[in-house]
Amino acid sequence: MGDGSSEAVILLVEDSPGDIRLIEEAFSDGNIANSLNVVSDGQEALDFINRRGEYEEARRPDIVLLDLNLPKVDGEDVLHEIKHHPELGHVPVIVLTGLDDDLIESRDLDHDADEDAVLEKPVDPGEFVALIRSFEEFRLAIMRED
């Protein structure tokens, strides 16, 4: 697969520097081998997943961490695009949100995020690392089957 790297390619779509720092620290504390790509608005996220412009050489992400409340293009639109993308439909998306469960359900994310995870902000680093590990093991298990 690609360059043979066992690092997970993770795309973090987040506009809050504090949340970005928290997630970077959680990865490093959790000792997760990853290539973390950070984009700070929905338009950049779409460019990354579609390999446009400066992201032409980007590797496809194995996991996407997506804040819903983004500038330029809304996080829900990014989620929809990922889930309907021919090469990314299977990629797990972890939705990062400050919304509570009732609001999430009322915004009808379910049809796009049904097999994925929703983490409420502020993100709990322990819970976050456990979640990433479960996705990473799932991804590596799939890769080993090839």
Rank of each mutant, 00 (worst) to 15 (best):
E57L: 15
L70N: 05
L131R: 13
A33N: 12
A8N: 07
A26Q: 08
L11Y: 01
P17R: 07
I94E: 04
N31C: 11
E127Y: 13
E54W: 00
K121N: 06
A130E: 15
R144M: 12
G4N: 12
L109R: 06
G2Y: 13
R59F: 12
E136H: 09
L140Y: 11
N50F: 09
F135L: 05
L22Q: 05
D110V: 01
E81Q: 15
E56A: 15
K83R: 08
L119R: 04
D116Q: 00
A26D: 02
I32S: 05
F27A: 03
P86K: 10
V118N: 00
M143R: 13
R144K: 14
L65A: 07
I82H: 04
R60K: 14
E25C: 09
E14R: 02
R60P: 11
L12M: 07
V64A: 07
F128Q: 05
R139C: 04
R52D: 08
P92F: 03
L131F: 02
Q43C: 11
I132V: 14
P71Q: 10
E81C: 12
S28E: 13
L131S: 07
P122L: 03
D74S: 13
E57F: 13
E57R: 15
L12T: 02
L109D: 03
V95F: 01
L88I: 06
A130Q: 14
R52I: 10
L119H: 04
D41I: 07
D100T: 08
L119M: 14
V95Q: 00
K83D: 00
V73G: 03
E87G: 03
D41V: 04
I20W: 00
I104E: 02
I63F: 08
H90L: 11
S28V: 10
H80K: 14
K72R: 15
S106H: 11
L11C: 00
G75T: 08
R133F: 06
F27I: 03
S35G: 09
R133P: 06
S35F: 13
S6G: 07
S16K: 06
F138K: 12
M143L: 15
D74R: 13
L131A: 07
D29N: 13
R107F: 08
V64D: 03
H80A: 13
A117N: 05
R139E: 08
A130P: 01
A141F: 08
L66F: 10
